[in-house]
Write a protein that binds this DNA or RNA. Structure first.
Lengths: 126, 126
DNA sequence: TTACAAATTAATAATAATTACTTATTTAGT
DNA sequence: ACTAAATAAGTAATTATTATTAATTTGTAA
C-alpha cells in the first residue's frame, strides 16, 4: 500500500508553515521555496495547501488584501490583522472564550463546529 | 451646497440591506433590485457597497464561497456561517465578550480597533 | 426654466487570486 | 528495473472585484 504524504514539495510546504509564525500566503510560500525548488509551481502550492487544509494539518486563518493566509499551528488561538501592513499576529485568548464558543447556542444552527476570531487594528510598527 | 447620498440607487441598496437579515452578497442585491431598477449595473452595487462601508453605514461580515457578505445592522454582534448552504445568521454574544475584546492586550499590536467573530457549522436546514 | 458643474451611473475592460486541465515526472511497491 | 498511482509543471480558464470612460442625472442658481 502507498503511504501518504510522500511528496517532497508537500513536505516542504508544510514544514515551512510549521517553522514560521508569519501566517503566509500561497505566493509567499512559493517565493520562499522557489530557491530550494527552482521548478516549483504556484499551482502546486495552492493544491497542497488545499490538501493539507482538508487533512486538518493546516488552517486558513484570515484573508488579508484578498489573499488567504495560512497557519500550521493548530492549537486553539486567534489572530490580529494589522490594517496598515497586513501583518498577522497570533492571539492567545483565555480558555473561557473557547468554553463560551463550545457552548454557544445559536438560533438556527444545528451544530457549531468551529469559530474564528480576528482582531483588527494597527501593529506596533505601523 | 450639494446634499450627500442623493442617489436613488444608493438609497435602494442601503434600504434593502436594512430590510433583510440574510447578509446578502453584491450579486444578490443586484438581482433583487434589477426588477425595480432595470438599468442597474453590478458595478454600481459594488461601488456603493464600498462607499457605504467606508461611510460606516454597512459592514462586510464574512466571505462565503468567495463572496463578500454585507450587513447594515451595526450594533455589535457576530455571525454563524453554514458550511452546507452558506447561510449567514446573526449571533448575539454576551457583553462580556465585547468587554474582553476591548481589553484585549495583543503582543505586537499598537491599537485594536475592532474584531470579528464567526462561527461555522451546519444550520438547522442542512 | 435653463444652464452648468459635480456626482453618479452603465457598460465595458482590466485585475488578480484561485482552480482546472493536460501532459510529463516522480514515487513506492513488486 | 517495471508498473500503476500519485504528484507536479505549465498553461488556460474562472470569477469576484475594481478601474475606466463616456453618458446621464442631480442640485443649485442665474
Amino acid at each position: 500500500m502507498r503511504t501518504q504524504n510522500y511528496s517532497r514539495k508537500r513536505q516542504a510546504i508544510y514544514e515551512l508553515l510549521l517553522s514560521t509564525d508569519s501566517h503566509p500566503s500561497a505566493e509567499w510560500i512559493y517565493n520562499s521555496l522557489k530557491q530550494r525548488y527552482p521548478d516549483l509551481s504556484l499551482g502546486t502550492v495552492y493544491r497542497n495547501l488545499k490538501l493539507l487544509e482538508s487533512n486538518g494539518s493546516v488552517k486558513s486563518v484570515a484573508v488579508v488584501e484578498g489573499c488567504e493566509r495560512y497557519d500550521a499551528r493548530m492549537s486553539p488561538h486567534s489572530h490580529f490583522v494589522c490594517r496598515g501592513c497586513g501583518r498577522v499576529l497570533d492571539v492567545f485568548f483565555p480558555e473561557e472564550l473557547d468554553d463560551f464558543a463550545q457552548r454557544a447556542m445559536i438560533n438556527g444552527a444545528k451544530s457549531v463546529e468551529s469559530f474564528n476570531l480576528i482582531f483588527y487594528g494597527k501593529c506596533s510598527e505601523c
